[in-house]
Nucleic acid binder design. Structure first.
Length: 114
DNA sequence: CGACTGACGCCGA
DNA sequence: CTCGGCGCCAGTC
């Protein structure tokens, strides 16, 4: 019910992350108006409808690590998709310093308010 | 109810 | 950089 709404909120926020950039679970939670609910973000991504375009692979841990176990199929797919966009992945992690998405305030207002 | 479980995060040693 | 420990919260059993 209400949780459904939260997930939708999270999915929409994730869609704001542009190609070639990444964001952390906590960052998405904050932007979605759900501070402290990073874990919920991970769950929401897992429940994301296949049809809906949600760039789940652009979401990483706060330290830039891919959340899946290194070598797992999911981790490999995420790595592949990121590299296709030009995001360098070394040792199952990305350098947030270089690729983290820093949302532009004006754009956020534009895309979330309307 | 309580216990356990995560696609998490932060802090201190 | 690695570990341990604790906080967090929606679901599940």
């Amino acid at each position: 019910m209400n949780s459904e709404h939260k997930y939708t909120r999270i999915w929409k926020t994730v869609q704001l992350v542009p190609p070639g950039k990444v964001a952390s679970y906590g960052q998405i939670a904050d932007l979605a108006g759900l501070p402290g609910r990073a874990r919920l973000v991970g769950k929401a991504l897992g429940y994301a409808p296949p049809g809906m375009q949600v760039p789940w692979y652009r979401i990483l841990r706060s330290n830039g690590q891919i959340a899946f176990p290194p070598g797992s199929e999911a981790a490999e797919e995420q790595k592949g998709r990121l590299q296709e966009e030009g995001v360098a992945v070394l040792n199952n992690r990305v350098r947030l310093k270089a690729f983290q998405w820093t949302p532009d305030l004006a754009e956020l207002l534009f895309r979330l308010e309307f």
